[in-house]
Design a protein around this nucleic acid. Structure first.
Lengths: 347, 347
DNA sequence: TGCTATTATGTTATCGATAACATGTTATCG
DNA sequence: CGATAACATGTTATCGATAACATAATAGCA
């Protein structure tokens, strides 16, 4: 492990020379599963250890046309959601022996998409994970473009499209669960504070709320909801609006915990008792939710798992492609779960 | 932009052939700044556009011994702090034309360190950013190992060491500011809830609190502090302990906002008025802090900026090395700032 | 006018590894 | 015992690009 000249890289040639064999033999030792005599193997391994030789992944990728690298395109890393997902991705990629090359979009229009894809392909990534929220038509590009991308692509948190692989939390089902929970504790005038409705995820959550109420024979009009932008500040605004439009509400399903936090706070300020006068349920289950005052009932989505599953899927697709099997596109959902806490705890 | 056979990669040879020139000429067109006639350039550019040719970064990196890629080693992406830093890193790297290869450590012992470094070096990264919190002696490895790493390394949030480059938030100064703020509003019995004291950052924050009190001629004994593990749940525990050990405290500096959140909540529950009976100040300025009840005074650290500065530094080091200039190791601090809110607002 | 500088392009070597092929040696078996 | 399979190793071509060198045409200048 001791190299006299730290500047120059140790290459397979150095090892071959020092061990008195050909480079091919060194390669065979490094990659196992090929005929090498025990004696030679040991000698080469000793030299490898002594020189601290590490094969260049770059060179290997070039000849093998395969990089064991996944390209990740994300957005909004400064928020907790995307980074939880990234955490799952990083974990699982590591387990499966893949490296990650990361690109973060700094806005949500599609101006840089070509660039980003090209730069990932130029790195010979074996597959691409597209972990950018679907907002408006910012995923429209994929219709024309997807089939000319030479590697598999998997989308995270996207509206399922036929012929395109994706993994997402089942936002709709989560919202159904949340709304049913409010019904189950006897609430009937259930409001909703949604995320920005250009977001697919926000729409799904709202749809879950609406359809559940309708199925229960209750009203679910626009009077009963208002829209925030996920931030605590916007939650405050949205709550004020909602109180005005729908003054006699007895509960509210808030599309994320951060906005729900503001609702708890403002309700408290105005002397509204929770959960008796107003039951509140959020979505996401951020770590702080358990420590709000009162603690917040919420729908827990496992973003870590989402990331892990995404990597597993894309790696399967990569391997299928390597074996010239055809890839069957698949859209999968991860089910979120209900976590009951004080903000809906009615005895 | 229309390729007949989407399977095979378009290489420089395809372009050369289609344009009726040598590969070298294509290379010259792609890289500008070399003699190519206007006519040839246009013809080649047209072919490039038509075939959708993109040079292989891999091949280029191999011959140039330079990858325009930075290796990032992180820990705890599921927490908001590390991902904010990563966000800054990704931003700035993109601006400077670098890609990121990411490795996340899944624990803090040093078992996988050699592996991680090796795998990054095998990718020919031009430099490494080590963004793992310093805990106990988990940075001890660098003493022996650093000089045999063939590329520059920069450490984020590490105790400054001579001869090693690093960037960190000035936790000490932040704590001083926080404590002075409590003094300035007339508090004299100031407690502290620290992070886990194996963490360098936690130690620095505690030191800032202690030394500021001592300088003001006040006591700062172990009776006046307790220790959490950054989580809201641990903040609750630590607060109970503190109340027992130091019942007549009039204010508390909590080492992060998540724990401070629990303090606010428990104080509220016990009917302790904030800030009159107990002033509370946190550290980090997470987005929710402004919306706690009451809103939380805190020390804001700009992790985005920290990430950006780190990238700038490492890129400078990379370039210096490329030009065979010597690299001067440097330790820099980013100053955090005080954000005053209701939890210390005494008229 | 002839020599050097500038412009334009092609040829060959190279980065560090593996694939494909070739060759020689040793075991195995009818 | 000779043919064939299994083992062991080396040689050459290759991945996709650029570096280094070579060549040729044109221009500028003493």
């Amino acid at each position: 492990m001791n190299l006299s000249n730290p500047k120059r890289r140790i290459t397979i040639k150095d090892v071959a020379q020092a061990a008195g064999v050909s480079t091919q033999t060194v390669s065979r030792v490094m990659n196992k599963f090929s005929y090498v005599s025990e004696e030679t193997r040991l000698r080469v391994e000793a030299v490898v250890e002594e020189l601290g030789y590490r094969p260049s992944t770059l060179a290997r990728s070039l000849i093998q046309q395969r990089s064991y690298t996944l390209g990740i395109v994300t957005y909004g890393l400064k928020y907790i959601g995307p980074s939880r997902t990234l955490n799952g991705i990083a974990d699982q990629a590591d387990k499966l022996g893949y490296m990650l090359v990361m690109k973060e979009l700094d806005n949500l229009d599609s101006s840089r998409i070509e660039d980003v894809i090209d730069s990932l392909l130029a790195r010979q990534v074996d597959g691409i994970l597209w972990a950018v929220p679907e907002i408006g038509d910012n995923h429209a590009w994929l219709d024309g473009r997807l089939q000319n991308i030479s590697v598999p692509v998997l989308f995270i948190a996207m509206h399922p499209r036929p012929g395109v692989s994706s993994v997402a939390t089942d936002n709709y089902q989560g919202a159904v669960t949340a709304t049913e929970h409010l019904l189950s504790i006897g609430k009937r005038r259930i409001g909703h504070i949604s995320g920005p409705l250009s977001w697919w995820e926000a729409m799904e959550r709202k749809r879950g709320w609406r359809e559940t109420l309708q199925k229960a024979g209750l009203d679910a009009s626009e009077q009963q909801c208002s829209e925030g932008n996920w931030s605590p500040a916007s939650g405050e605004q949205a709550f004020f609006q909602l109180l005005e439009k729908f003054p006699d509400l007895d509960s509210v399903f808030v599309a994320n915990d951060q906005m729900a936090l503001s609702v708890l706070r403002e309700a408290h300020r105005q002397g509204i008792t929770i959960p008796e006068q107003l039951a509140v349920i959020g979505f996401d289950n951020i770590p702080e939710s358990a420590h709000f005052y009162p603690s917040l009932t919420t729908i827990s989505q496992d973003l870590q798992l989402l990331g892990e599953e995404a990597v597993q899927s894309i790696v399967q697709m990569v391997q299928a492609r390597q074996n010239r099997e055809s890839i069957v596109a698949e859209s999968r959902f991860i089910q979120p779960t209900l976590v009951i806490r004080e903000s809906t705890a009615i005895q």
